[in-house]
Amino acid sequence: MFKMTNFSNEVETIERDLLSMGEEVLHQMEQMRDVFFIPNKDASVVIQQDATIDAFDRQIHTSILHLISLQQPLPEELRTLTTMMRMAREFERIGDQVVNVAELKKELDVDDLRPYVSTLFVDRYKEMIQVSTDMLTRTLEGMRARASQTDKSVEQMDEDVDALFFSMQQLIIRDMKETPEQIEKLAPLFLAIRYVERMADHVVNIQRRKY
């Protein structure tokens, strides 16, 4: 049973859920950093975390819809609620991309990809994950502080992620040329870095949708 109290209190509850969802997504991203490069790193754990993120998404959407149906919000309040709903969906999509990476690891059935790729690729992949998680960390800090201004540094960091993405594509191609017998193991990495690049894009979308 949805219990109606005060509109602003209900919004604050949804806001707390949204922050908790973001923190869960951040943890999920951090778990993914070494998923390709640590022997016996269980990708299933990362995949299972997505159920929590999906539950947050459902809860936030349900709470917002109940609130709108029980009390007609003012235009500004409606804008806040719809923005929160969209942010939750962006968080959920980041979680989906993390799952995509983890599932690639399971499909490859290789505990440690380091013997098949260059050291430079490993370093840049980890850097790409780190920059993406830093972007989300800054965005969550802004949400906690209720900062009204967009953090321009997040968009600059997204450009860094894009640059890493393009350079890593070239590294994969180079590794394929040097070890053509490993193409089957290297090809899925094109998808892995694309998924990470999309995560950063979703963080930028969240950053721009301040409420």
Rank of each mutant, 00 (worst) to 15 (best):
M4G: 01
M4K: 14
N6G: 01
S8F: 06
E10G: 03
E12D: 15
I14Q: 07
D17T: 02
L18Y: 04
L19K: 04
S20I: 01
V25D: 03
E30V: 06
M32V: 04
I38P: 00
N40I: 00
N40K: 15
N40M: 08
K41E: 10
I47Q: 07
A51T: 08
A51V: 07
T52I: 05
R58G: 00
Q59T: 09
H61R: 09
T62F: 02
S63V: 00
L67K: 08
Q71F: 04
E76C: 03
L78F: 13
L78R: 11
T82A: 04
T83K: 13
M84Y: 15
M84H: 12
R86C: 01
R89I: 00
R93A: 03
Q97S: 03
V99L: 01
A102C: 05
E103L: 07
L104N: 10
K105Q: 14
E107Q: 13
V110N: 04
R114G: 04
R114L: 06
V122L: 09
K126Q: 15
Q130R: 15
V131G: 04
L136Q: 05
R138K: 14
G142N: 15
G142D: 15
R144E: 15
R144D: 10
T150A: 10
K152W: 01
Q156G: 00
L164D: 08
F166K: 13
Q169A: 02
I172H: 09
I172N: 08
D175A: 14
M176H: 08
K177N: 14
P180G: 10
P180S: 10
P180A: 10
K185V: 09
F190N: 07
L191T: 05
A192V: 13
E197D: 11
E197Q: 11
E197F: 04
A200P: 02
V203I: 12
N205E: 06
N205H: 09
Q207I: 00
R209G: 02
K210L: 15
K210Q: 13
K210F: 09
Y211K: 07
Y211V: 12
